[in-house]
Amino acid sequence: MLVQEPNSIPLAGATDVLVHWPAHLDAHAKTYLDLSGLDDLRHISWNQEALTLGARTTYWDVIQDEQCHQEFPLLQHAARQVGAVQIQSRGTWAGNIVNASPAADGVPVLMAYDAVVVLQSTAGTEEVPLNEFYMGYKQMRRRTDQLVVAIRLPRRSYAVQVFEKVGARRAQAITKVGLAMTRSSVGWRVVASAVAPTIRRCPSVERLLEQDAPVCSPDDLAEAFATDTQPIDDIRSTSAYRARVLARVAFHALQSQAPGRS
């Protein structure tokens, strides 16, 4: 169907599309591909190396899964921060990825866990690391004939796992600044949200942490974050706030997760 209708939009949850439906009249003329009948796409599967989430797996599915909680606790932390239960029970991880909001809550933790996006088309299967999936604001490495069918997360043991969401209130808020951090055998992963056109890793910060540089105050992180991000002023916050808070949240998270770094 995606080949026949290359501009059609696959729906998995539709929690973003439907909220704007009454106001966005231009959305009414588009073609949508409803995936809600494809039960094979809704699963949480484990093998030796990886956890795989289906394209229709919801936040709620993960919240309820004990093994996810054990091995990938940030998935639950993030899922609990998405809207309220109504959205959590409809919204999907894959939908969060392809909706490509720079303020998404699911994407940063997936990226901090080195998630891989599994794309399928009539031509075959392609795998793209989530870290390389975004090319610009709402620009993705997904051909119009490809469907995201799964998300794969490698199983590792983590020494540090952090997810911080700063919204305008304690619940049901869109992220103003977000941060996901992990440290495993493959090193540090630092992912920032709502401070760039896409959710992205912060290589300068990761380098700084890999080098075990002393971090005695938020200022010691701020410069590296400034290299990695381009926060803006918008209706929800200011670039100055985003930049400062990102460094402060990261600093205090490091202090509590890995004390003695200072």
């Binding site: 209130r169 304690r170 049901q172 869109i174 209706i235 929800r236």
Partner: peptide
């Protein structure tokens, strides 16, 4: 209220923030 030319710019409940029970 975020203003633009004397009109409210953030006229959606996602951008005009009222307290939830958790606040």
């Amino acid at each position: 209220c975020v203003w633009e030319r004397g009109g409210m710019k953030n006229c959606q409940l996602t951008n005009y923030i009222i307290p939830t029970s958790d606040d």
